[in-house]
């Protein structure tokens, strides 16, 4: 993990759990770094399973959505599984408006997301 990582990452039972340090995921450089860090986790696993929690997140940009889509594409390419959880209602509205709730599997809680992978 980079020393200046904007992520909290843990692993249990073959599932990588990711949380964001920042409440706002807006800065282009940070978004790129986040995408690269999660991308390296995906590349290191033959069949990656990830839960990304948004429990700390108040705002995100379309560039952050783009990074999530790239992550999702990489996970699918390796027959892995990606779950999103704990999304604030206002941010969930962004997923709904963009119809990205159709391509991401979104759960209310991390626990529910983990159970869906077991």
């Amino acid at each position: 993990m980079p020393a200046d990582s904007r992520l909290r990452i843990s692993e249990a039972d073959g599932v990588t759990q990711v949380e964001f340090v920042d409440r706002n995921i807006l800065d282009e450089a940070n978004i790129q770094a986040i995408g690269e860090e999660i991308g390296s986790i995906i590349e290191a696993s033959p069949s990656p399973k990830l839960v990304i929690s948004f429990s700390n997140v108040d705002h995100l940009s379309s560039a952050a959505l783009g990074a999530l889509i790239t992550i999702n594409n990489k996970v699918r390419a390796k027959d892995g599984a990606l779950r999103l959880s704990n999304i604030d209602p206002q941010i969930y509205e962004v997923f709904t408006i963009t119809r990205l709730n159709k391509i991401f599997e979104i759960h209310d809680s991390t626990q529910q997301a983990l159970e869906s992978l077991s």
Partner: peptide, 11 residues
């Protein structure tokens, strides 16, 4: 939907 760009203006 799986293109990682092009959502800013519609938002």
């Amino acid at each position: 939907l799986d293109k990682p760009f092009g959502r800013g203006i519609m938002l």
